[in-house]
Design a protein around this nucleic acid. Structure first.
Lengths: 131, 131
DNA sequence: CCCATATCTGCATAGCAGTACAGATATCAG
DNA sequence: CTGATATCTGTACTGCTATGCAGATATGGG
């Protein structure tokens, strides 16, 4: 991972070095940033989003019902659920030979709601022309 | 995109077909889901997160200062900013030969805050063991 | 113990995304 | 106009990610 540049490579060319240092100091630590990126990465797939939205609406659902609701293959569903479970976004409860999944906390709902609002407001005419 | 399965392939095996249909009907339309996934995808990269966090803290910054604050190469910074701008997350203002970037709305702050809270609460001991 | 069902796992493949390097563009100074 | 600086763009490459298939595991019924 090439990160030799802290601030030295272009220190003399900075417009406002003081503010840069202040901003730099305010940034979360690397592992926190990485964890954040991972969480958002989990939400960056339409299939996983549908699964989560289904759980948000349906409460607790088994794999087969989830697959049907989200319109995906059961294998894909299982893979996705494993990922979500590994990252503590959903939890699983065994009932006989079925597994019932549900959301682990309410943060997902908030994230979806805020992002939805952003999409509705920002997406007035698709991506902005670059120039 | 293989999505032949709506609900027919395993309709007779569903545990609670009624609820499945209700959930299915409650899901946002495909393009909305895709837009959501794109937004989260923008936030799923540590470098872009650092840029956004820098703008959150610093207000409005030029490319060079942003690159220094986030600890990334200027080319990488420019690519990332282009993406963020194309998706209307940040906006650019030209001042002489410099470009000043800033956040376009407050949703990013909320998303980061909620996700941060999730990370702090859920990440008690890293990813959960699968079984 | 054997079978059927529900879910999981490992593997291989295809496609996408992040990065670096080189060159292009735009603005300002003189 | 010419050169210097700040930023942008195109391209190639590398690594990750989503997906489907086949086989494995686990549970319940008889």
């Amino acid at each position: 991972m090439p990160e030799p540049v802290a601030i030295d490579s272009c220190e003399l060319k900075l417009v406002d070095p003081e503010r840069v240092r202040a901003v730099q100091a305010s940034l979360p630590e690397a592992d926190v940033v990485d964890a954040l990126a991972e969480v958002f990465g989990l939400l960056s797939d339409p299939n996983r989003l549908r699964l989560l939205a289904s759980l948000l609406e349906g409460g607790e659902l088994c794999v087969c019902d989830l697959a049907a609701a989200a319109g995906m293959a059961e294998s894909t569903t299982s893979h996705a659920l494993r990922l979500l479970r590994a990252h503590r976004v959903v939890k699983a409860r065994r009932a006989g030979r079925m597994m019932h999944y549900s959301l682990r906390d309410g943060h997902v709902r908030m994230l979806l709601d805020v992002a939805l609002e952003h999409v509705r407001h920002a997406d007035t005419a698709g991506p902005e022309a670059q120039r």
